[in-house]
């Protein structure tokens, strides 16, 4: 409860900061919605031509985009530092969070808001509402799917970027991991062979963000539910654990001046 109040105060400050540049903020939100919409035309064209691929049709695809965009949007808007954590660590900017009496990881993540994320979130919700699965129980499943997506997005990226504690600058690696995760999450994993599917459930958990939640909203199954819940919990706890472990090795940018 204490932490909830604290997070709310951080979000308030984020919104105040966004409102300092409100014209840019609203432009970003609207353009991000258009951007996603135009990108989705690809799937409209595709399913117009091929109808269905292994049980996937345009409606399932709208679910997938709805979940992935909402999950990404929530991450970006409310926990915006989850894509710049490596820079924060390497740049010694954890000092600030470490000198305040709050959980460091939570504090870092929620201290930045990416305005365009709101555009993704609105688009995602819209895509879900138009998908044809907008029923009471469909909505519940959608919410669970989005929750899993947020956990996986954030957990996965925190793990990759926490490697900075050991390896130094991993900004390039993190960017690659992010783009791989995002790209794969926007395609149904039924397209791929068994090995790739396994990779998409583990090392690059993109299937847990897109395919599995979308199939779960389409039709309830215990298998998907368990995969989603256990996947999110594993990634969430692993990310906290690895981050805390790394924190002991944090160097606060003190030792980086040395170049021989």
């Amino acid at each position: 409860m204490r932490q909830v109040k604290f997070i709310l105060a951080l979000w308030k400050a984020n919104i105040q900061a966004a409102m300092e540049f409100r014209a840019a903020f609203f432009t970003q939100v609207i353009f991000m919605m258009i951007n996603n919409g135009v990108y989705f035309i690809f799937w409209v064209l595709y399913f117009d031509k091929f109808n269905a691929v292994r049980g996937w049709d345009i409606n399932t695809m709208m679910l997938l985009f709805g979940i992935a965009a909402s999950a990404w949007g929530i991450g970006a808007f409310f926990f915006g530092n989850f894509i710049s954590l490596a820079e924060v660590i390497v740049g010694g900017r954890l000092d600030y969070y470490l000198s305040l009496p709050r959980p460091v990881l939570l504090h870092v993540l929620a201290s930045k808001s990416i305005g365009s994320g709101m555009g993704d979130l609105i688009y995602g919700i819209g895509s879900f509402m138009l998908s044809g699965y907008f029923t009471p129980d469909g909505t519940l499943r959608f919410l669970l799917g989005v929750f899993a997506g947020v956990c996986i997005f954030i957990g996965f990226l925190v793990i990759v970027q926490s490697l900075s504690f050991w390896l130094g600058n991993t900004v390039a690696l993190s960017q690659f991991a992010l783009s791989a995760l995002l790209t794969f999450s926007l395609y149904p994993s039924v397209l791929f062979d068994a090995t790739t599917k396994f990779i998409l459930l583990t090392i690059i958990p993109a299937a847990l963000i897109g395919t599995i939640p979308a199939e779960f909203v389409r039709e309830f199954s215990w298998q998907s539910a368990i995969q989603m819940v256990s996947g999110s919990l594993v990634f969430l706890f692993l990310s906290i654990f690895i981050f805390k472990l790394g924190l002991k090795r944090y160097e606060s940018g003190s030792a980086i001046q040395v170049e021989v």
Binding site: T27, Q28, F31, M32, I34, N35, V38, L45, S116
Partner: peptide, 24 residues
């Protein structure tokens, strides 16, 4: 003229993706 131009790039890129035949 406008403050935020990065958004234009996104739209231009998506137009090339679709109408330019990048994805399809």
């Amino acid at each position: 003229v406008v403050e935020e131009t990065n958004s234009f790039e996104l739209i231009y890129q998506k137009l090339v993706f679709i109408l330019g035949g990048f994805l399809f």
